[in-house]
Design a protein around this nucleic acid. Structure first.
Lengths: 338, 338
DNA sequence: GCAATTATTTCAAACGTTTGAAATGTAGTT
DNA sequence: AACTACATTTCAAACGTTTGAAATAATTGC
């Protein structure tokens, strides 16, 4: 359609004034005559002038873009957390570029590099499950671009900003809830050991037992990655000893909890109807299950996202020194169903 | 950390050569001496030179960014379609900015404007459910930036590029499947009438009946938006007449199908166990349901996304004229469960 | 030893914007 | 008429990159 792009220069020529006047008029400089402003703004509107962000970025040395790297968009935790980020970012004039690592380090490095080239003003990242080396992410801080790790983070590393679900508290609460309902044999089905917070969740479980004088039994603890067969054998392990049969179950994440429930039903477990289960998640699908968990540990992903972007913006605006490493915990909430 | 940013100029000063030599060396120009290239590339690596994309975009007049606008990221159809887009875009050196409209026109306009300012090279969009006016999207084509509508599109408008699920074929196939299993009373639970393809799905249903000499009854058709109560009253309507009781159901989308199943079970519908259902979707949660649909209409979102980006890249590369409006249909596949 | 080639490097302008400093215009005072 | 004091506009450089044209250096042939 249009051959000549509508730039400040183009507007300036049309209006027979200088480029700077046009620029200042559009940016509402007080030194520009009101009538001039009106003329410029009308012409800009009529000709559909759209400022070129690349040019602005180049001049301003900032992009007003926040990068997000996360494993995938199929997990509702992540999509819900994005909601929190986007909401708050947009309100503050920032845009968001989302990049999926598909839990693959190579892809994560690619994403990081492209976001670096795009000169994002800050980065929010949930690392892939096999990220051990952080050179690709450290680059950002080396260039003065703040990075906030959220959820999945390098647990051993204290020299980075973190926003985490308080997964300890969530798991504690769940176990406590089951104890209060009279359960003495509460099984714990943990997640992949390489995910950093697997340990925190287990500690929440253990501490709830301890604080309430419920004896711990290692027979009642098993781990699984997200693989179905793996989950089944973990469950078989948990329900193996008739003398030590669980009456309740806390699971690392809802899909594996559902797998567990499904398995117990499929083998016609004698106490199936009495077993009370809780998992991390709280998906809307629960309402469609016939044997739903008694409660869910709601991780408040939107809030995690919002806290991450809030912290990031404070770092970008230098309200917090980039070296003054922060750790923010977002509490979980137990949602009792039915 | 670093005070002076590592730019071409900085490298040039370090190496005591001109900016252009450095640039050409990094871009592997044949006129540059091999030894020089090596020196430059090493220095660039050692100093972690990262080309500034804004500067390149400005010079090249293209961003190598594809914009996507879609209603939300909570619907797996959309997240799966993004997978297809991202995959193919990345392979071809493009990055993707995703923006959610939250099914709100105002937010969609904002997203469009920001993507326009970012000078995306192309746009893929699934419009919000109340987008009637397209000025904010037409801007792109006016600036020569191709737009591909996918899934949700302005149905009345032939002057735009479209990539659509062949929802007619999907629904036809589902109805045909049920007919072949001997059903004569197949109910149809449709989606919001303002979504453009609601009609196509209904037509698939109707045509399957017609082609197989199954009489049509308007009592067996009802519509719902995604609101639960609305769905329940639609279901009540479908199962109201004892003389015309459905034995099967085709639903617009799985969540509403699940609501339907749940309701029928809750009222202890006498034929509940015989009723066979099919919905659009195919989510992984189906495996956890006790009364799962007999089949799902898999819409192949990844393929829809991939077709959209393929078409878009052809338009960007001018392999297809921007005015030569294309319509691509992606077939659905019936997945029989169990 | 010098012109003719060829190889390699540098110059300079451009992309579209912002912004402090300088220039110009206008009105008010004396 | 000359001066000050503003109001308004323009100049010019800068941001980091690319690239054709021009300049320079190195090599070859005679």
């Amino acid at each position: 359609m249009n051959n000549t792009p509508v730039t400040l220069k183009f507007l300036a020529e049309k209006l027979k004034m200088s480029v700077s006047t046009v620029s200042k008029a559009l940016n509402n400089y007080p030194t520009i005559n009101e009538y001039t402003k009106k003329r410029v703004q009308e012409m800009a509107r009529d000709l559909h002038f759209t400022p070129n962000k690349s040019a602005i970025n180049l001049k301003e040395k900032k992009s007003r873009i926040i990068g997000i790297i996360l494993p995938n968009l199929l997990d509702h935790f992540f999509t819900r957390s994005i909601y929190g980020v986007e909401q708050f970012a947009t309100q503050n004039g920032y845009n968001v570029i989302i990049s999926q690592s598909h839990d693959d380090l190579e892809k994560e490095i690619q994403s990081a590099n492209m976001l670096l080239r795009s000169r994002v003003d800050g980065l929010i990242v949930a690392i892939s499950k096999n990220t051990q080396d952080f050179a690709h992410l450290d680059q950002f801080e080396n260039m003065g671009i703040p990075v906030v790790y959220y959820t999945r983070n390098p647990s051993f590393n204290l020299s980075c900003h973190k926003v985490l679900g308080n997964t300890f508290q969530g798991c504690y609460q769940a176990a406590k809830f089951l104890i209060d309902r009279g359960h003495k044999k509460i099984a714990y089905l943990g997640g992949p050991k390489m995910i950093n917070f697997t340990h925190d969740r287990f500690n929440g479980y253990i501490n709830a037992l301890k604080d309430n004088q419920v004896p711990f039994s290692s027979e009642l603890v098993a781990y699984t990655d997200f693989d179905k067969e793996n989950t089944v054998s973990a469950i078989q392990h948990l329900f193996a000893n008739p003398a030590n049969m669980p009456t309740a179950l806390v699971a690392f994440k809802e899909p594996i909890l559902f797998d567990a429930i499904k398995y117990l039903r499929s083998i016609n477990h004698p106490n199936f109807n009495e077993i009370e289960c809780i998992g991390f998640g709280n998906t809307s699908f629960i309402s469609y299950l016939d044997s739903p968990p008694i409660a869910s540990i709601e991780e408040n992903p939107e809030s995690v996202g919002e806290n991450a972007i809030k912290l990031l913006l404070q770092l970008i605006n230098k309200e917090i020194d980039i070296q003054n490493y922060q750790k923010v915990m977002v509490d979980c909430k137990l949602i009792v169903h039915g």
